[in-house]
Amino acid sequence: MAESLTSRPTLAAADAQQAHAHIDADTNTGISNTKLGMWLFLASECLLFGGLITTYLLYKHPLEGPTPHEIFDIPFTSTSSFVLLMSSLTMVLAVSAIERGEHQRMRVWIGATAALGATFIAGQIYEFTVFVREGLGFTTSRFSSAFYTLTGFHGIHVTIGIIMLVSLVLLSLRGKIPEHRAETVEIVGLYWHFVDVVWVVIFAVVYLIPS
């Protein structure tokens, strides 16, 4: 019995032999429906955030109220961006850990990812509070509406991501994420990386490119 088990191909063997990295699902595409669904969702999210970024570009010159150049605190936002960027590293290390069967390490990396995400959200709340105190409310100008809608939508996405990460840790603690379901962690990771990718665009287009 033991011999028949060890003679089965391991994930490493499958990984090494195939052009792609993951176990084949029993579907026409060889990709699980859940993963395919997540990628379709992310493709559609490109359209959502594309629309919000385009609206911001159209309205970034305020006719009244503070201008972006007057209120943005680039060093602060750069730090937040760096925090979110590093959360992508911790996320991918969590996926790597569960693929190796290291549950405890996976939980540590996911916890770190959630903590970094929460730090980013705390920074965004602080930033919004400062902007409002400086006279930039949601309805102050077309610029402010477009800015808060874009960055707010992104913040909501990050918050949903944090909830998913915490849920993963709880599921793992209850033993509901064995290695052969490592794809669950990978799918949550895809969402998290996408949120990071969107911020890469927002940070450059909204904060760094001068008006």
Binding site: P9, A13, A14, Q18, E99, E102, P178
Partner: peptide, 17 residues
């Protein structure tokens, strides 16, 4: 190829990669 229908025990997969 390992497929999702291969019922590989997690104890075997542990540390596989």
């Amino acid at each position: 190829t390992v497929t999702s229908h291969d019922n590989v025990p997690t104890t075997v997969l542990d540390g596989a990669v």
